[in-house]
Amino acid sequence: MIDLHSNPIHIRELSDQDPKLLDYANRIYGLKSSPHSLESHLHQLDVAGIDKAVIMPIDCTTVHGGKLVTNEQISWLLEKCDRFIGFASVDPRDPDALKNLEKAVKEYGLIGLKLDASLQQFDVTNEEYAYPLYQLCTELNIPILFHGGMSWSPIGIAELSNPIKLETVIQTFPSLKVIISQFGWPWVQEAFMLGIKYKNVFLETSILFSGTPSDSVRQVLAEQIGIANLYRSLSEQIVFGSNTPRVDPKRLVWAIEDLELDKKLEKKIFYKNAARLLSLSGGMDG
């Protein structure tokens, strides 16, 4: 199983290295609970049944003065544990963004880019600073995970992450692989529309708004979209993501299992679609 969306901000070893991370986690991300050890984190992956977890930072330097984990810390975690897959983050308005992304991919071995327009407060359609990043991702052949919809950050602006804004980006960069987190909630129909229209768009499952993850995932996938439409139109494009540490990853796994989908589709969601998206080769049976 692959968890395509997690943030290692709550791993204590990182805040031990850089105590400012605790302040950023609290002030920017809105995470107020105590960090836990890498050992506990790996036990949580075990219980959830997650073989590989994509870990990603968020660089908010321009607007908030800090990074929610750095690309270098992601690289350090990759060296510590081979169950992690690393995505990079750069601040789109940083003049060195392109250089930093290239370094993260070529030197640190990171294989995707995380952008959070709500938190980084940028316009995803900006041709001056955002489009060159998309062009570079196309050239490097790496996907971008866009935060989609509501931001739980106390200073996040949801409107900036309305997935409908991505359509011009998708059309301008037709070979760019785009992942939209949390099915874009509350703009689920907009995200669904992009998914059924564009085959390079992937929708990620960390749907968390009220009730348990099982409640909210069921409400969106079964009631708003409809299970039949998952089979018909999205079976190759749904990827499992937990958005840890907003919730313990086991609960998102249970949420998907509680849908009682056909095992073939469940395996695509938990493993195959992400493996194809990330160009991972054999070794895991999911």
Binding site: N26, Y29, G30, L31, K32, S33, W152, L208, F209, S210, G211, T212, P213, S214, D215, P245, R246, V247, R251, W254, D258
Partner: peptide
């Protein structure tokens, strides 16, 4: 049981995490 309609199933602002 895990599957039940508990009230404690929401975002907990004091933690910044889902309390589920």
């Amino acid at each position: 049981p895990r599957k039940h309609n508990y009230r404690h199933a929401r975002f907990l602002h004091s933690d910044g995490q889902m309390a589920v």
